[in-house]
């Protein structure tokens, strides 16, 4: 199974939450809203490309809209492998996170 980084996991979760209708702008907006950080569009697209090459995302060209000057969107959808990679990361995190419930005292 393909291992993913923390930012890749966030992008996969954002794409998954947008249910196949996510594209650059909406994925960036979702990530910024949930992380409360500024995330560049270039970083979003670089990660989307990498995840698509790994087979964890699939993209298709969507319809043109007026607010985009008549240009089409590239819409992203998570693949079964992508969903499995996220679940695996969550399992690992859950196992590793358990001891932190009892932090060491200074």
């Amino acid at each position: 199974m393909a291992r993913i980084g923390a930012f890749e996991e966030l992008v996969l979760l954002a794409v998954s939450g947008l249910a196949g209708e996510g594209y650059g702008v909406t994925i960036q907006a979702e990530l910024e809203r949930e992380t409360d950080e500024t995330i560049s569009l270039g970083a979003v697209y670089a990660t989307l490309d990498r995840l698509e090459r790994k087979g964890l995302l699939r993209s298709r060209v969507g319809p043109a809209t007026a607010e985009r000057g008549g240009r089409r969107k590239r819409l992203y959808r998570i693949t079964p492998d992508g969903a499995a990679a996220v679940r695996e990361m969550q399992r690992i995190r859950a196992r590793l996170g358990r001891p932190t419930l009892h932090p060491a005292r200074a």
Partner: peptide, 20 residues
């Protein structure tokens, strides 16, 4: 797709647009 995205983002101000 990138020009379309940037067209949508143009309203966020010049500084933020240039970052993107």
């Amino acid at each position: 797709e990138l020009l379309g995205d940037l067209e949508e983002l143009a309203g966020r101000g010049p500084g933020r647009l240039w970052l993107d």
